[in-house]
């Protein structure tokens, strides 16, 4: 295996295109190094993208927030503005592993690992995030839902890699939240998770709602009916009950070492309600 540390997008692409055998992109390494050690992957080339400036930046413009693919969880958490705009996304990334892991793990890596249980994903979907991809044919931008195809499988074509994640600048009175269920308090992979983004009008009525759940299907799922249940209404028990049911209905989990079908299905509904409540409350607290 050869390790490469290109310093430009162009150089990375040409390494990826010209690599003989299997090439893997390395960002924080907290998944890739484990997979290497456990011999789950045996690539011929490891292409470290951390030395490419675009992957290390956080930029905010009128339209969007761009978080470089190699920005670490710790760096994202320390950024005052992103957290104010999308607290749920930042919290989701902050839940990935220990403090030590946070010093290395990246949102880009979490996404590209394409685990059904990835913490950042439901939050990113709820926030309507996009993936910024660089490749031999230039840059393209696709939705998170389109990017994730199956466990361990993404829409990246040969020669492509993720440069950044883009989040919209949230509309007025919008907030998000992410919650996950783990049996311990830390260091576990999500057994079930839910991310939600809520927009309210001046009367506290919901005008826009997105809800996504993780670890309950091959890829994180957007609960499409959530919007119909929540929009134009206030948050009451009746709606929450409907929401829980609608969430459980989209779940197609498996039984594995981390949880059972019944448990995941039921708790997805619980977490969905809790995440919506939290996002709602945060949105209420925003004056703008």
């Amino acid at each position: 295996m050869d390790y490469h540390a290109p310093e430009s997008i162009h150089a990375a692409i040409s390494l990826l295109v010209n690599a003989e055998g299997d090439a893997r992109v390395l960002a924080g390494g907290t998944d890739v190094l484990v997979q290497l050690r456990e011999e789950m992957i045996e690539p011929n080339h490891l292409i470290d993208i951390k030395n490419i400036a675009e992957t290390r930046n956080i930029s905010i413009c009128a339209k969007e927030v761009r978080v470089g693919a190699a920005v670490t969880g710790a760096e994202l958490g320390e950024h005052p503005k992103v957290k104010a705009l999308w607290p749920g996304v930042v919290e989701a990334v902050g839940l990935i592993g220990s403090h030590q892991i946070q010093s290395r793990a990246t949102m880009g890596g979490n996404l590209c690992n394409a685990s059904p249980a990835a913490d950042s994903v439901p939050a990113l979907i709820a926030a309507d995030g996009k993936v910024v991809i660089a490749g031999p044919n230039g840059e393209r931008k696709i939705s998170i839902e389109d990017f994730l195809i199956a466990p361990g499988k993404t829409a990246l074509a040969i020669g492509e890699f993720v440069v950044a994640l883009a989040l919209p600048i949230p509309p007025t009175r919008t907030a998000d939240a992410y919650l996950r269920f783990i049996p311990r308090t830390e260091m576990d992979i999500a057994v079930v998770s839910a991310g939600s983004a809520i927009t309210l009008d001046e009367d506290g009525k919901c005008t826009h709602a997105r809800l996504a759940v993780g670890a309950v299907a091959p890829t994180a799922r957007l609960v499409k009916s959530a919007s119909g249940i929540l929009v134009d209404g206030l948050l009451d028990d009746d709606r929450l009950e409907q929401l829980a049911q609608a969430t459980s209905a989209v779940c197609e989990p498996i039984d594995d070492k981390r949880g059972t079908v019944a448990f995941r299905t039921q708790v997805a509904g619980v977490l969905a309600c809790r995440a919506v409540k939290l996002a709602w409350q945060r949105a209420m607290e925003r004056d703008i």
């Binding site: 390790y3 390395l26 390494g29 907290t30 190094l33 484990v34 050690r37 490891l46 710790a74 592993g97 220990s98 403090h99 030590q100 892991i101 010093s103 290395r104 260091m187």
Partner: peptide
């Protein structure tokens, strides 16, 4: 990366040295 026994500081941040090349 699961036990922290290998924790060292790298440029001032705590990391798992088993997860860095």
């Amino acid at each position: 990366g699961d036990c922290g026994a290998c924790t060292v500081l790298m440029n001032g941040r705590a990391i798992n040295s088993c997860l860095v090349l």
